[in-house]
Design a protein around this nucleic acid. Sequence first.
DNA 1: AAGAATGCCAACCGCCGCAGC
DNA 2: TGCTGCGGCGGTTGGCATTCT
Length: 259
Amino acid sequence: MGRQPCCDKLGVKKGPWTAEEDKKLINFIITNGHCCWRAVPKLAGLLRCGKSCRLRWTNYLRPDLKRGLLTESEEQLVIDLHARIGNRWSKIAARLPGRTDNEIKNHWNTHIKKKLAKMGIDPVTHEPLHKQAVTQEISSPTDHQPESDNQHLQLPETDDHVNSEDNSSSPPENCSGDDSRSLDINADDPLISWLLEDATPLEDTSWKFSAAGDDDNSVGLPSWEENCTWLLDYQDFGVQEFGFGCFNMDMDMDMNNFQ
DNA sequence: AAGAATGCCAACCGCCGCAGC
DNA sequence: TGCTGCGGCGGTTGGCATTCT
């Protein structure tokens, strides 16, 4: 008994979104919010599955998104959080207002990984690479993998909670969707406990534009005007067509509709 | 200048957890 | 209590852009 696909594959468009589709989706969400993603494409007149709509919205169209590369401080925060909790991109993203898990994941894979490797730090364990190599040689001298092969590396570690070398007996942690039970996480760490508890989703916090400036995060959320800039500059969109006035004037109301 | 190699990122896929029934 | 459907998550991929040879 297989799981029902998220959408019937027939007649569902895939691939890059066109400006026209973006327009429809934005228009629909502005006026109606997204009560149920599965229903969104149908109601918005899109030949996409709901999942695709949600992804497009959360990763690209949401007006509160920051654009551009991560700043130094954001990057540092990502590294720090990754060292503590591993590849939990959504949790990491929740600490970076205006950033998406996809964006952070991409940035990690394309920039930070290399950066850390260059610095001689293993991007998975956050330990010096030479130490890793020595450890690996001891455990399996005949099967020495290049350092880029992170498949068999251990868990990410907290700063003050170092894995013992004998954790080779536990399943190799590649941070691929394992839950917290299998992670070697120090729950006493306030940050970790915050991350493990039901942290407010990015979507929820990020809509509260007015509170953005008050956020105690080092990386503050840009103002609404800033956030809109990219959208307003989106050459294929007619601002008037979207009725962006409603974004500015009825922001609170609209945002509440999105809950 | 042209083709190859590499980088980058948007989007897809499949799985999981949870809520509702 | 088990089943089903939905949203969310993380890993992976496809294709365009950029750099290298």
